[in-house]
Design a protein around this nucleic acid. Structure first.
Length: 112
DNA sequence: AGCCTGACTTTGT
DNA sequence: GACAAAGCCAGGC
């Protein structure tokens, strides 16, 4: 799957560029890649993130509401918010506190 | 081929 | 402000 791998690789690269204590949304990544209407594909890509080398910090990717929608897909679901807390991101009730402050806009940070 | 599901987002009621 | 529906692409059955 070389062709599709390119899209996934792009997602992984962007996610890896996310600095500590920062998070982003699937939509931002998708839009940056030109698939603004396919945020789900980003999530699907994250599904393979665990199989990628090096591993992708998928815990820094959340939905538009700052909700840890993908935490259930982690090895232990608690690992996601634990990692976020370790990086300085407060998580409460599976939601990121001060999400907009921790939000890392791909298009903005990468100077699109 | 057809239908259903999914780590999303936006819009309309 | 909350809930429902639609749009989107890919994969599994």
């Amino acid at each position: 799957m070389p062709k599709d791998n390119d899209f996934f690789s792009s997602v992984y690269q962007v996610v890896r560029k996310i600095p500590d204590s920062k998070v982003t949304s699937y939509g931002s990544i998708a839009k940056y890649l030109g698939m603004a209407r396919s945020a789900r594909m980003v999530g699907w890509a994250m599904n393979q993130a665990g199989s990628q080398i090096p591993p992708v910090p998928a815990h820094r990717v959340v939905n538009r509401n700052g909700l840890l929608t993908g935490k259930a897909h982690f090895s232990p679901p608690e690992k996601m918010e634990r990692l976020l807390k370790e990086e300085g991101v407060l998580v409460k009730n599976d939601c990121i506190v001060n999400f907009k402050e921790h939000f890392w806009d791909v298009e903005q940070e990468l100077s699109l």
